[in-house]
Amino acid sequence: MVTLNDYLILSAILFSIGLIGVLRRKNLLLLFFATEIMLNAVNVAFAAISKFYGDLSGQMFAFFIIAIAASEVAVGLGLLIVWYKKKGTLDLDSLATMKG
């Protein structure tokens, strides 16, 4: 029988994978992928809590997280395209222009 703890552990593992991606990625596009993984991991936890507590609020929050993720992708990718046209690279180090 699958319990709430199993889902929460899975969600934690997925979130950790996303965190590792955020830490080790240098390409901005792949950094975005890692944040998507983290958002999805949280959605799984919300849906599981919603099921095991018999409450719909968890699913509602998952919906709003999906909406936020969609708009984040639209704006973020627009900014990435502008940055790529300006600098010709997506390297994270190219953002460090204020280094003394």
Binding site: A48, K51, Q59
Partner: peptide, 10 residues
């Protein structure tokens, strides 16, 4: 996972 958790719409 969402289908397993009876969250069909999600």
């Amino acid at each position: 996972f969402f289908f397993l958790l009876d969250a069909d719409f999600l």
